[in-house]
Design a protein around this nucleic acid. Structure first.
Length: 248
DNA sequence: GCCCAGGTGGGTA
DNA sequence: TACCCACATGGG
């Protein structure tokens, strides 16, 4: 299947805020917009994140740290079957019980400890009210999450965006790989550098940030793989720098 | 058998 | 700041 990334009629409209203005639109904004349109046109809206409640989404964000989602799904199922997918129910589990339930997600001892820290934070600071913890001034909510041991920038931003509906851009390994291969970032770019790239050039729109990140995951899994990338079939293939063009 | 997966924190130079 | 390492299971 071939794709022509620059044919807008194939794409669903992106949020109207992207097409407004009337002032000079930066080249970077245009590039990011083209990437999003290309991916969205190919994969369609992703409707992320898997999870029925904000707490389930937050737990999934911790469990998926450096772990494939399939393994996380088993752990989530275990927690669901045990009725442990509320802050109060999970807090009643012993550490051993929690470890056993999340074992399929890997790193289960460290992740059980991290969930424990998260629960302590929720109950201690917010009476177990996750919605309240994610509300208020965005940078403050983010800083507080980052103060929880085991919640780093990606996990904090995933919780804010997908559990809290807050407009923050989530950067992950897929995002870095795709951008680096297209010479849009340097290999050494930090999480913050990459996040700023998106948040300085795109409207702070929760739906856009939600779907854009999900699109990076989709293209990273299917085409922009660590080894043997399938650039010739990729919806971003037309945006490759010459040196990066590879056969599939 | 080997590599990889939707990171993070701690240690060291 | 910039690396290196431990952390663990399950699928391709």
């Amino acid at each position: 299947m071939t794709h022509t990334p620059r044919t807008p009629e194939h794409f669903d409209p992106i949020p109207h805020t992207l097409s407004g203005g009337g002032f000079c639109i930066s080249a970077m904004r245009t590039l990011l917009e083209t990437i999003y349109r290309s991916l969205h046109g190919h994969f369609g809206r992703q409707n992320w994140w898997p999870g029925d409640t904000p707490f389930e989404i937050a737990v999934g964000a911790v469990l998926t740290q450096n772990t494939s989602w399939k393994n996380v799904a088993k752990a989530i199922d275990n927690l669901k079957d045990a009725g442990a997918l509320t802050p109060w129910a999970m807090a009643r589990l012993s550490r051993d019980e929690l470890e056993e339930l999340i074992r399929p997600s890997g790193f289960f001892r460290v992740k059980a400890r991290r969930l424990g820290h998260f629960l302590e934070y929720l109950s201690g600071e917010w009476g177990g009210d996750l919605d309240a913890a994610l509300a208020g001034e965005l940078s403050s909510a983010r800083e507080r999450l980052l103060g929880v041991s085991g919640i780093g920038p990606e996990t904090a931003d995933s919780i804010l965006l997908y559990a809290g509906g807050r407009p923050v851009f989530v950067v992950d390994a897929y995002t870095k790989r795709v951008l680096a291969r297209h010479d849009i970032i340097d290999d050494t770019a930090s999480y913050h550098d990459i996040q700023v790239l998106f948040m300085d050039h795109l409207p702070h729109d929760t739906e856009l940030f939600n779907d854009f990140h999900a699109q990076f995951v989709a293209v990273g899994k299917k085409y922009c793989r660590p080894k043997n990338p399938r650039c010739s079939e990729c919806p971003l293939g037309g945006l490759l720098p010459e040196k990066e063009i590879r056969s599939s």
